[in-house]
Design a protein around this nucleic acid. Structure first.
Lengths: 340, 340
DNA sequence: CTGAAAGCGCTTACAG
DNA sequence: CTGAAAGCGCTTACAG
């Protein structure tokens, strides 16, 4: 690569010290510097096409204007949409973002945290993995500003912005029951992740409050480690088979829904007549399925913006911890229009 | 934030110079340093939980181990999938990636290029915007290693890895014609982007070679600046109306296809009986549409890996420019099973 | 074998 | 008004 123009080059060209150049270019000590000199410096900078080396600046100022974003998988539409929102919000404040995918793996997440901290990011936005409490502790010990997104750990006091997962799930179930579902199922992950366990709790409490006798085959949990497609297919077979098959299903994530829908489609189960369906998250597919899908819309724009704002506030040393629970929106469509 | 442990702290603790600590920790001059001293240094580093400041290292070594990725929109599934592949490939070589979305806008792209260069990224992977030739020139003038992805400028000699867009499009059309389409349409972007114009050329040449008399209403181009949804709907109205309505459509991108499919769905046009369909790019929706979609599968894994590899080679000073044209794969499904 | 010194490209407290 | 000097946290050519 070509040698870059530095302060020194400008200083040499104008015949002043680098200090003066720095002052002028950063508008420090304005008024206290002779106008002609300032003018000449600015001109030289323009002529030489000077661009400050941010790495040098970062080292000196101990500030990189870089945010780290750690999600489960950047190629998951939920997270890539979030990434775009965070990028835009960060950019408004002249921050740049480095990202990493942790694949729901706490060890990988820890490695990423260290990589990003080594690069001196000013703060982190993290969708934490299961069992990543020690990661959080690590960040706190190092006084690294961060905010959790999408998931949090109820036992640990941190900044976070998450969906009200309990309520979203509860409302979805209430809707299914109101529409006449007698045997609602839940397909979810086998995980201690709080957002996911809240979705399960919403399901359970809704059944309880509506006096529906829960059957174990209605609730299936697939774990991150299995082959997701096969696991989903097996789970659906069990939910739809046996002597108490479900008549509706809530999918706990876009990923589960995508696999699930493909399978349901291939098995020629008619939606909503044979089976009513609700999914978490908006998907392109929701509109294209022959029975447009009822879904829980997450306030993803708010989630990304607020998380970024909280992080920036914390970086700028406002230290109160903030916890924001956002409400989802149940968008009702064809897939829950059951015929009684 | 907490003060971080530096080389100096280790040096002080052990009672040696920072130079020696640096040598030991980087395994330089191994053998030429007394074993007990080396041992003590390593222990101290472990005890103090030392993590090198990469910013300082970067400044000194003029190397950041950071790659910049500029795409049109990170929330577009095509690009987020690419981002994940690039992330993984970069990580194998201990590189980290900063991303930015340029929204098909050359000015925004230029701003991003500068932001990333200011941060001293070692190289750039770019899906360039229309009319971004000057950006390319800028990169070349600055001898910044980069590789174009997804699109290239045929008149400029650069590294790039792209789909064979002409052939992919041609094959798609040939398939439509073979299946009995008499009036095939193309819905694409109004743009000079080479990948897109090649898709158009593939369409045109296929018609020509098959002696199909082209009708202007068959080919519609929507521009990036309009409201995409409305533009697509209007375009489809025209393609499907008039006195020579199309009997099949090739969508030139996943975005166009998503809007298009939603509209087609809402208008109750039956696929493939009333209209056959092919889309560029794999979409979740392809499987979920009642008529699973025939699509052109891009070798996106190869594209991301190869682009990253070429970039890393160029960073490591192997300077030959490499241009890789990858072949797409036509995945044939229900949406082109026409009944004659 | 070991370390003092210089330097990467900046900023800024300090002295004149 | 202006600039010499120190320093951010590293690496490394060089001298001993």
């Amino acid at each position: 690569m070509k040698r870059k123009i530095s302060l020194k080059d400008i200083a040499a060209k104008v015949g002043v010290s680098t200090a003066l150049v720095s002052y002028v270019l950063n508008n420090k000590k304005s008024g206290r510097i002779r106008v002609e000199v300032a003018q000449k410096i600015k001109e030289a900078a323009r002529e030489l096409n000077y661009r400050p080396n941010q790495i040098a600046k970062s080292l000196k100022l101990n500030k990189t204007y870089t945010l780290g974003l750690i999600v489960a998988d950047i190629s998951n539409p939920f997270f890539s949409t979030l990434a775009r929102i965070i990028e835009d919000e960060a950019d408004k404040h002249n921050y740049t973002v480095i990202f990493g995918s942790a694949d729901e793996n706490a060890a990988k997440s820890f490695k990423l945290i260290n990589t990003l901290m080594d690069r001196q990011v000013d703060g982190l936005i993290i969708a934490p993995a299961e069992n990543a409490e020690s990661n959080i502790k690590y960040l706190q010990d190092h006084e690294m500003p961060f905010v959790l997104i999408d998931r949090n750990f109820p036992a640990i006091s941190t900044n976070w912005v998450c969906l009200n997962n309990f309520k979203a799930s509860f409302s979805a179930l209430q809707h299914l029951l109101d529409r006449g579902s007698k045997k609602p199922g839940l397909l979810t992950y086998k995980t201690s992740l709080y957002n996911i366990s809240e979705r399960k709790r919403g399901y359970e409490i809704a059944l309880l409050e509506n006096n529906v006798m829960f059957q174990p085959t209605w609730l299936k949990e697939v774990s991150f480690s299995e082959d997701m497609r096969t696991a989903v297919e097996n789970a659906l077979d069990e939910m739809l088979g046996g002597n108490s098959p479900v008549d509706s299903i809530l999918f706990s994530s876009n990923i589960l829904a995508t696999y699930g829908l493909k399978y349901i489609h291939s098995r020629d189960i008619r939606i909503p007549d044979d089976l009513a369906l609700i999914t978490f998250d908006e998907m392109d597919a929701s509109d294209l399925f022959y029975a447009p899908l009822t879904y829980i819309k997450q306030p993803i724009q708010d989630m990304g913006e607020i998380a970024t704002q909280i992080l920036l506030e914390n970086i700028d040393a406002i230290k109160k911890t903030q916890q924001v629970k956002l409400e989802g929106d149940l968008i009702i469509r064809k897939s829950t229009e059951m015929v009684e």
